[in-house]
Design a protein around this nucleic acid. Structure first.
Length: 438
DNA sequence: TCTGGGGTCCTAGGACCC
DNA sequence: TCTGGGGTCCTAGGACCC
């Protein structure tokens, strides 16, 4: 059996833990730069607010402030969901964190009849897990149980939709499986995206049941695609999607849209340096080095009245690295190659690839300075430590700081934050934000 | 005026090897 | 008239996920 634990309206629920006055009221959380809606409370969903709605449209539509709005606060969401993972670590035999708000649980098959967990016990286990998470973290979660991961996902949707399941729904018999499949729209099945759903609907398939009823050969012929065939198998109760392991990322990307538009190379360099530094930190956090770095640059695609340009280039490191200074330097070099003056840029990003373990690293046969290498390593470790203890970006490179010339031609540092006008505090990670009880 | 930020896997086709 | 038979690796593009 598999389980999935899925946080209900994750970001909204994180905010509500510290704002219980907002329970039962419409709440949305916005993307970076207060761009669009990425999370909605049930009340907001009922009002017809769609995911991805640009915030300025929402504000026009509901000028009376009836909807509580939050900028995204990933420091908070990361810490809150981390607490949930800790509880799952204690309660579950094995698990895999699938995303920030979802966790798969693996129940090993037990051939011994006497040791086998009975269905009723498993269902109760799920209900108890929900209660423990609700009580100790404050997050409502929905739990689905089933013989395959895809069916567990289906079950979790029913757990979310019908209160009668007490937040945990289990598909453990043929009868329940059939009933669930018939009630489930094909476009909501895990692994069926917009394209596949459209194709299936054109073939007269409306529900998961319609799809599962077709012959496997038919599925293979129509799609010639192993991924969708596995989904078909899973709906039919055959465990087919491979279990994932705690894997290291194979590529790491840090990108942002800017608050406003940017034309000058100096500001772009500062942005790109910041993204590169983040990539280096992420590489070190998972104990890896990257062999290739890529940088991309975009103008504003929504401004059809302005000339458009986008470009991307890569550079290979002779010796794979996770050094902040090396990665920042390389990123700037690539940026200079793709930058064309005269455009109004809206977004840039840094990607690191060809990721491998940080030891042993194949060094350069002809130009390797062991002393320099060790120095860089110690410097990065010191930066990471200081930023961990004192908060991120306590210590940064000079090139990470945004500067402009004052009247006398002297460079002046200024903050260039992305827009976060409605950001909540960080009472779980910042001493300055700690809650005061009256 | 204002429109997010990450990831994964699979396949086909081309370049290259013997 | 007739033009082999295996492989591997890499890349781009397309689908999907949250």
């Amino acid at each position: 059996m598999y389980g999935i634990v899925d946080c209900d309206n994750c970001y909204v629920s994180c905010e509500r833990v510290f704002r219980p006055d907002l329970n039962g009221k419409p709440v949305v959380v916005l993307s970076n730069n207060d761009g669009c809606v990425v999370a909605r409370s049930n009340e907001a969903k009922k009002m017809g607010i769609k995911a991805g709605t640009p915030y300025f449209q929402l504000a026009q539509q509901y000028p009376d402030n009836k909807i509580a709005v939050f900028s995204s606060n990933y420091e908070l969401y990361g810490e809150m969901t981390g607490r949930i993972v800790e509880i799952i670590r204690q309660e579950a035999p094995a698990f895999f964190r699938y995303s920030i708000d979802e966790c798969f649980i693996y129940f090993p098959e037990n051939k011994n009849e006497e040791l086998r967990v009975k269905s009723e016990e498993l269902k109760l286990w799920g209900e108890n897990l929900h209660q423990r998470i609700k009580k100790s973290v404050g997050m409502p979660v929905s739990i689905g149980l089933g013989p395959t991961k895809t069916l567990a996902k289906l079950a979790s949707h029913f757990a979310k939709k019908y209160p009668g399941y007490r937040h945990c729904c289990m598909i453990d018999t043929e009868e329940k499986r059939m009933k669930a499949l018939k009630l489930y729209p094909i476009e909501d099945v895990w692994g069926i995206g917009r394209r596949y759903a459209a194709k299936l609907q054109a073939l007269g398939i409306q529900t998961a049941y319609d799809f599962a009823q077709h012959h496997g050969d038919w599925v293979r012929n129509i799609f010639n695609n192993i991924v969708i065939y596995r989904t078909w198998q899973e709906l039919n109760g055959i465990d087919a999607v491979p279990n994932e392991e705690m894997a290291k990322k194979k590529s790491i990307c840090t990108s942002r849209s800017f608050n406003g538009m940017v034309s000058d190379l100096e500001t772009l360099k500062t942005h790109v340096t910041n993204y590169a530094v983040r990539c280096a930190e992420k590489l070190r956090a998972q104990k890896t080095v990257a062999g290739v770095i890529g940088v991309f640059l975009n103008t504003n695609v929504f401004r059809e009245d302005l000339p458009q340009y986008w470009n991307y280039e890569e550079k290979r490191f002779i010796v794979p690295t996770c050094s902040t200074i090396e990665i920042a330097k390389a990123a700037t070099e690539v940026l200079e190659k793709i930058f064309i003056p005269g455009y109004k840029y809206k977004k840039a990003g840094v990607i690191v690839m060809s990721i491998g373990p940080n030891s042993p690293v194949q060094t350069d046969l002809f130009d390797y300075n062991a002393e320099q290498f060790q120095k860089m390593k110690r410097l990065d470790a010191a930066i990471d430590h200081i930023n961990k203890v004192n908060g991120s970006e306590t210590l940064v490179l000079g090139s990470q700081q945004y500067t402009k010339k004052d009247g006398k031609g002297k460079a002046e540092v200024f903050a260039n934050a992305i827009k976060h006008d409605y950001k909540s505090k960080n009472p779980t990670t910042r001493w300055s934000d700690i809650i005061v009880l009256k």
